[in-house]
Write a protein that binds this DNA or RNA. Structure first.
Lengths: 208, 208
DNA sequence: CACGCCAGGCTAACGTCGTTAGCCTTCGAA
DNA sequence: TTCGAAGGCTAACGACGTTAGCCTGGCGTG
């Protein structure tokens, strides 16, 4: 299990120079103006070319989205791995709290990319092999149980996506809602066994 | 609190006959062929008329979607209320388990309507007043705590939407994943029948 | 009965989208 | 010097939501 932690992320196939530039522009466009702004014509405009010219470098809009989804998964995976890769992190309440805090912070830092990467159908066959599994590993590392891991990830994704879509009533104290979820899953993941302590765990959401 | 249970759903404004027929056709189309099939031309075709004729009855596609979202929220709300409206249901593990089971069943029974109603931005101002809050009440009734209620709803929505989008690895045993979540929240909501304790009673989704 | 109104259909068309076909220019290698 | 490929371009297609404007049938009123 520990070897999972040290295994790096699967390498994303790298694109030709111009294609990579297009993806980079697409990301800026997506994050700054939202999903609806990500059109081929608008993307071309940002790059100083016309929409059909993009097809000289990429097979279509779908390919742009796949590349962005890969970037999103990779970055969320990196942050999650970082959160559970302390020197001797073990499954338990502390790991759960740390992972959930990191997941929330990272996803809210790139809301449109997160939504693109995690909402709607996943083009599994077109993703870098192993990427999806790698991005999911930290949840198992934090809980030590595959079902609790999936349940906790579902909670985290639900919280993030509902927040991004402004689904909570105005004025909701989402810090406290996260806290409630953290406590529920921390208890389920067993008592504190974070680095160096085996004592009542406080659940600090806001230190990440 | 009990009066909340017995209070019925807010009445949905009812549409003129032909408009209601259009919405009904839209629902069938959405559920049977998916979201992408819900176009004005396709909808007209199902009804035996041309797309522009729909505008004689409804102001646009947005209005169709709003009506469908209302229907989805109302049905999910009804099922959720039913799940927590036992003769003397009280917050606690049993209520939590029952509500989560009902939520899963009902949402998976109308996957496309559920997705339309709960993913993406909510046209709050255009919904029947009180509908959203009413649909959220059961979560508070099951937990007795507004934050735990929101957290648990987030978990349930995350599970459903990830399942609908085929986001779990093939072969995942989602029954067991649900079970893991149910246990975590059941514990958090207190033992099998959380007694009528001294909670400050606040509403679930609408607190300030 | 004759008239006019209007509900509820229709076609044509606009501007958007992703995408394809085909042309032209530039530039490096043979 | 020539040639081919890389990488731009315009024109255009079919789908989308939507608008403008026309037409027809039935009903209420004079």
């Amino acid at each position: 299990m520990t070897d999972l932690v040290t295994r790096g992320p699967p390498e994303l196939r790298q694109l030709p120079r111009r294609a990579a530039e297009i993806i980079a522009a697409a990301r800026v466009l997506l994050e700054s103006e939202g999903r609806d702004a990500l059109t081929m014509r608008r993307l071309g405009q940002v790059l100083g070319i016309r929409a059909p010219s993009i097809y000289k470098h990429l097979p279509g809009k779908h390919a742009v989205e796949v590349a962005l989804i890969e970037a999103g998964l990779a970055e969320m995976g990196e942050a999650s791995h970082r959160a559970v890769s302390g020197p001797r992190t073990r499954p338990g309440a502390a790991a759960v709290a740390g992972l959930l805090a990191a997941y929330r912070t990272e996803s809210l830092a790139r809301p449109n990319l997160y939504r693109l990467a995690t909402a709607g159908p996943l083009p599994r066959g077109e993703l870098a092999p192993g990427l999806e599994e790698w991005a999911g590993e930290p949840w198992f590392l934090a809980t030590g149980d595959p079902f609790l891991a999936q349940a906790m990830w579902s909670f985290a994704h639900g919280m993030v996506i509902l927040e991004l879509d402004h689904r909570y009533p105005d004025g909701s104290d989402l810090d406290r809602t996260w806290q409630a979820g953290v406590e529920a899953f921390a208890v389920a993941a067993g008592p504190a066994s974070g680095p160096g302590q085996d004592h009542p765990v406080r659940f600090p959401m806001e230190d990440a």
